[in-house]
Computed example of a mutant assay.
Amino acid sequence: MKFIIRTIIIVVASHFSLLYFPWWSMAICAFFAGALIAGKNLSTFFSGFVGLGFLWLIQSFIIHNDSNGMLSNKIAELFGLSDGVFMVVISGLVAGIVGGFSTLSGFRFRRMFSRNKSRGLYR
């Protein structure tokens, strides 16, 4: 349940922040969502990956369709790719990785200040 709530918060906050702020504002939203809602390491990473990856994938696909693929096809040619859809998918993967690591960083930042720290293996 925390996974779904965290993912929805990331998607909604990032969508509205991308309307007014630069692209990296989505990483800040994911960081705060990871810091506010606790979970496990893998769950936290994948909620940011899924949330921002799908958000960026959908937005870039809408831009690709609205422009009939002109912009993404030209950028794909610069990278030596055959079609602009590959650029849409690659941009979704990059946004997913940024979102995953941002959310995980927020979660680890929260754990840094928690009282019940594990003693670790070598302490």
Rank of each mutant, 00 (worst) to 15 (best):
S91D: 06
W23Y: 14
E77F: 12
M26H: 13
I63M: 06
F107R: 14
N68T: 10
I28M: 12
L42H: 13
F61L: 14
V12I: 15
A76N: 10
G34S: 09
G39Q: 01
F79H: 08
S82A: 07
S14L: 04
V11C: 07
F86M: 10
N65A: 08
M70A: 07
F109N: 07
N65Y: 13
G92T: 01
L57N: 00
G84P: 09
G92P: 11
I62C: 03
L55I: 08
D83A: 04
F107V: 07
H15G: 14
L93H: 02
G84F: 07
F107E: 15
A95T: 01
W24F: 15
V89I: 15
A13F: 15
V94Y: 05
A30L: 04
L104K: 10
S82Y: 05
A30W: 10
S72K: 08
W56M: 05
I62K: 08
A95R: 10
S91P: 01
L18Y: 14
V94L: 12
A95H: 10
W23S: 11
A13I: 05
F49H: 13
V12H: 05
G34L: 01
G80M: 07
W24V: 02
V11P: 11
F79G: 05
F101H: 00
I62D: 14
P22H: 10
R110P: 03
L18S: 11
M112R: 14
F21A: 13
Y20K: 13
L78P: 01
V88L: 06
T103E: 12
M112N: 07
L57E: 02
W56G: 00
S43K: 11
V12E: 02
V88N: 11
K40A: 12
F101T: 05
A33W: 09
L71G: 09
F107W: 15
R110G: 02
H64Q: 06
L104F: 07
G51K: 01
I90W: 12
V89D: 07
G99V: 03
F31D: 09
F31N: 08
I10G: 08
G100S: 15
W56L: 10
F46W: 14
G99Y: 14
F46R: 04
L18F: 14
G53R: 10
F79I: 00
W23G: 07
L71H: 05
R111W: 06
G51Y: 08
W24P: 02
M87K: 04
F109L: 12
S17F: 13
F32P: 02
V50Y: 11
S17D: 10
G106M: 00
M70G: 02
S14E: 03
N68D: 15
I37M: 03
F49E: 04
N65H: 05
F21V: 10
L81S: 07
N73F: 02
W23M: 06
I62S: 09
F45Y: 14
A30H: 08
F54A: 03
L71E: 11
L36G: 06
A38D: 15
T44I: 15
I63Y: 08
G99D: 13
L36D: 00
N68P: 00
